[in-house]
Computed example of a mutant assay.
Amino acid sequence: MNGNNTVGRKNNTVYIIAGQTCTGKSTVAYYLAKRINGEIVNCDSVQIYKYMDIGSAKPDKKQMEQVPHHLYDFVDPRDNFTVAQYQKLALDTIDDILDRGKTPILVGGTGLYLNSVLYKMDFAAKPVDMERRKELEAIGEQQGSQYLHQLLSAVDPDAAARIHPNNMRKIVRAIEAYELGDSIDPMNKLQPNDKYEFRFFALTMDREWLYTRINRRAIKLMRSGLIDEVKRLKAMGLTADDQSMKSIGYKETLKYLDGEIDLKEAVYEIMRNTRRFAKRQMTWLKRYDDVNWVEIRKGEAVSQVLDQILAGVPEAAAQK
């Protein structure tokens, strides 16, 4: 990171546009960037992947051409990508944008990615014991992820509460972290990253309207070619075991293509799982003390949303 350059900067502000899925974060961030001479930095763990455009709901290509967008569409979906890798790239990108006199706008809804920027999270962990990892993975294959989750609950209940019982990869990593004495601290124990001045906004909207938008998007994904996109990913050798294919939209479509469910069930599962994800996102966002909530109302122009975000920011006009 270019930490030594912060002293000479006129601006060290980083905007964060977070919020639940389907609240229009990408659109708001795009127009905000145009107003304040900003550049957008992705904070979504699915939009990092190449070849996964429809299901991940990446920003509009025309918008990406008109405003610089960073950390989108650059990881092969067959590769695992860690929070530590994201943190380094995100912080380096933020520094580069600031050094060029622009304003970074971090956009997305992946909580761990966001935390890796907001807090001083040291991922320089002890070397991984690959033999132990293989042993834990073998236990998971034989006994099931629920069994591993129970093991994790016994040694690190806080981590177990944060991790879904079916997410074997995260359960194994959490057990490893505990055994290495390097478990991830809960947010109230993390030290804030005071290198930047964060302006943290979370978009929200009426729940019924949000759920309607979620349901409509599930249908739109199918009409836009999600099935063909997943077929191409399958042809590349990707399966349900790959990290990228566990994302909402992809895992359900994969089940349809594998004959496990019919198309109607796939669409229903996408709707249901997205609604559940939106609830988890809200729970996560409520943990932050310094978040500014911005309610999106029906019929409201984007300019009105930006006025809420920029209210009380005197330099906003000067950055146009």
Rank of each mutant, 00 (worst) to 15 (best):
R275W: 10
D194K: 10
Q85C: 06
V75G: 05
D242W: 09
I40K: 02
S45I: 01
A278W: 01
F74K: 11
T82Y: 04
Q146I: 11
K120N: 15
V313P: 00
I97L: 09
D262P: 03
D53N: 15
G8P: 02
G24Q: 00
L118D: 03
E252F: 04
K279Y: 13
Q66T: 11
N115K: 06
T23L: 07
R133Y: 14
Y288C: 03
W284E: 12
G19V: 01
D185H: 12
E137M: 13
N80V: 13
Y178E: 12
V28N: 04
D185C: 12
G3E: 12
K120C: 13
H164R: 08
P127T: 06
Y51L: 09
Y15R: 07
S153K: 13
P157N: 09
V291H: 02
E141K: 13
R232K: 12
I219V: 15
I219F: 12
V267D: 09
N42Y: 00
G3M: 11
P157L: 11
K50Y: 06
P165I: 00
Q66R: 13
G108I: 04
Y113T: 00
M52D: 05
Q87K: 07
K298H: 10
L112D: 10
Y178A: 12
V107E: 10
L233W: 02
M64T: 05
M64F: 08
T21D: 08
E65D: 15
L148S: 01
K58Y: 07
Q143G: 02
M130H: 14
Y49T: 01
K170T: 04
A33Q: 05
G312F: 06
G55I: 03
L180W: 10
K279N: 13
A266K: 02
Q319C: 10
D289C: 07
V313Y: 11
W293S: 03
A18N: 07
N292C: 06
Y268E: 14
G109M: 05
Y288Q: 08
T253C: 10
D228S: 14
L71W: 08
H164W: 11
E179Q: 09
D258T: 00
F198S: 06
R162Y: 09
S45T: 00
V75L: 11
K279S: 12
K62D: 15
P68Q: 06
L152C: 04
D242S: 08
M187D: 12
L190Y: 01
E176G: 03
S224A: 15
A125W: 10
F74M: 13
A301W: 10
L152P: 02
N188Y: 10
K286R: 15
T6V: 15
Y211R: 12
S56N: 06
E141Y: 07
L221I: 00
E135W: 13
I248C: 07
V305C: 06
Q304G: 02
G144M: 07
K279F: 12
I16K: 02
A218Y: 09
Q142N: 11
N188P: 04
K62E: 15
I227W: 06
K134F: 12
Y72A: 08
A202W: 06
Y31H: 14
Y72H: 13
D156C: 08
F200P: 03
A311E: 14
V302E: 00
L254Q: 04
R272S: 14
A84P: 01
T13W: 04
I163P: 07
D290G: 03
S183E: 14
A266M: 15
D307E: 15
M245Y: 03
C43E: 01
